[in-house]
Amino acid sequence: MKRIAVRNLRLCTKDCLCLYVCPNGATDTEDSIIDKDKCIGCGVCADACPSKAISMVIQDYPPQQKKKESVVNAINRLAENKAKEEKAARQIASSTTDNNLRRLMNAVARSSRLVAEDLLREGGYMLPQSSNSLDLLASLIAAPPSDEFPMKAANEILSTIECNDRTGRGKYRCTVCFTEFEEEDDGEKPSCPMCHAEGKALEKL
């Protein structure tokens, strides 16, 4: 599992042992942020840090567990109500002159949003890189709800985030004829389209 080191500045006490042990100079930066292009994920800095200020952040997340449709429906129903509560609270807050009511409604709007976020997280939208999240974005791009929909933002996300749970479609290199190819989505074992080599002759990319 690919990992990179990230420093928590809240905890860093500048003992600088990370600097001393890093085999690649990734922690040697002017802005205290570990250079993620240099980090090779060995974790030695995290082990050496006396303040436990460095953690190894996972880069390849496993897929989120599948949810039953009935559970997702029950969750979405609640999320709809929470969204309504948030909207009502926002409307009250923006129309009242009573500062106490405005504060209370700001709190309700924030609270409802947080509860809805938590529900949707459980309902299958935990990870930005899941096919759930990316398919939703793709469907919004295909049929934008209005002209104001931020197409550029949605497209940029799709082009930068790689999906973590799409099945099939592995990329292979054939060690016999060196052809690189993408697996067909037909349930068959991958085989080289040039020389038909299979199994151990193929190297997964």
């Binding site: 999320a79 709809e80 929470k82 969204a83 809805a116 976020e117 997280r121 939208y125 930005p128």
Partner: peptide
Amino acid sequence: SPGVLAALFSNLARG
């Protein structure tokens, strides 16, 4: 609904 999508995407922003 748009309200739910707002929470869905602010959650992904957090993620």
